[in-house]
């Protein structure tokens, strides 16, 4: 099946089996290897990507579903200023998750930043659910996520005010 979609800001066309899993498509056909794969069941979070700016498990999305849609992988997100700021707060807190859970956590935080959810530990815990990781501190993750979300929301509100003022 021929599929046209946007991948990390570039228009792409591929000819692949319609039911190929997107994680395999990204890794095998585009050599994008930063997103990992582990359970193939939508349960562990290692294959997380952004599809139309929403976090999804790319092992649970099939190639035909990409038609006309926008995908951002770890490689694409790393080029954004938002990622630089997130990474800075990770480093400041000496929080360095491994490559298997890193992107699930980062994309979950990204989605939370752009949601209307209240910032409290319940909703942050819910947002971060789905990243199986028993080897780093969940308390630290919550604290880091809260710092990031608060900082990003401030930036976004500032930008909104700026736009309104310019109008």
């Amino acid at each position: 099946m021929i599929i046209r979609f946007t991948l990390n800001n570039e228009e792409k066309t591929v000819d692949v089996p319609a039911t190929k899993r997107v994680i395999d498509l990204l890794r095998e056909d585009f050599d994008l290897l930063r997103n990992k794969v582990s359970c193939y069941q939508g349960a562990c979070g290692s294959c997380s990507i952004l599809l139309d700016n929403c976090i999804v498990s790319s092992c649970s999305i099939l190639a035909f579903e990409l038609k006309g849609r926008t995908v951002v992988t770890a490689e694409g997100f790393m080029k954004t200023e938002e990622y630089q700021r997130i990474n800075h707060i990770f480093q400041k807190n000496q929080y360095d998750p491994c490559d298997f859970c890193r992107w699930g956590k980062i994309f979950a935080i990204h989605e939370f930043i752009h949601s209307e959810e209240h910032i409290d530990s319940d909703s942050l815990t819910r947002a971060l659910k789905g990243n199986q990781c028993n080897c780093s501190s969940p308390t630290l993750l919550l604290s880091v996520a809260e710092q990031i979300v608060k900082a990003e929301k401030k930036i976004n509100t500032g930008r909104k005010h700026e736009r309104t003022a310019r109008k």
Partner: peptide, 25 residues
Amino acid sequence: GGTALLSKQSERLPIFGAPLISLKR
């Protein structure tokens, strides 16, 4: 969404054995 259908698939390239009608579009 395919989440329930795929959770029954153990193959990397899922084989459904019947045509799929996607409802998402």
